[in-house]
Amino acid sequence: MEPGTGALAVKIMTTLLVVLLALAFILFLTSLMRLRRVERDLVGLYNKLQPVHLPALLNLLNPEDLSFLRANLRKPDFVQVKRQRTRALIDYVRRIALNAKVLTSLGELYRYSPLPDVAAAGQLLVSRALMTRILALRTLLCLQIELVLPLFDTNLVSTIKAYEAARTRLEGISSTSLVLH
């Protein structure tokens, strides 16, 4: 190799890296600008809420069922069943996390309502939804660990409690704004 060829290659790579990073960032910014428009559309946000079928989630979380399976199944079979259960839980918690994100956006819109009651309720919804989102993300991480180590147990109660509080708050705002209009 000619002397200086290596240095030139490094220089080219550094330049390419910086240019590509900057271009990727510009693309990222334009996509954010587009997404922001969607996040300000109230009807669109309500449509983004995903159904969470809670009776089915309750069935999955029944501790008695899990104890029964643990006692009666061979360990490899139990591990397989537990993994299937964890996959289903991940799907539910993902929906809860997404809904919490939508609720934050909704709360943010209501926060700027000219009606003081609606604005205050919006602020509360934002706080609760954000906390739910954080809890759901933490639970998702724990569930991913549970998928790898099936004997690890994740507690979902705090996430569901927070989700319930946020949803109740949204219900409160919906009825308030309907009464006031």
């Binding site: 300000r40 109230l42 009807v43 309500y46 705002i173 919906s174 704004s177 309907l178």
Partner: peptide
């Protein structure tokens, strides 16, 4: 743009 503060039919 002002947000429309009417709830679009979230099923109670």
């Amino acid at each position: 743009r002002e947000a429309q503060f009417s709830s679009p039919g979230l099923s109670s």
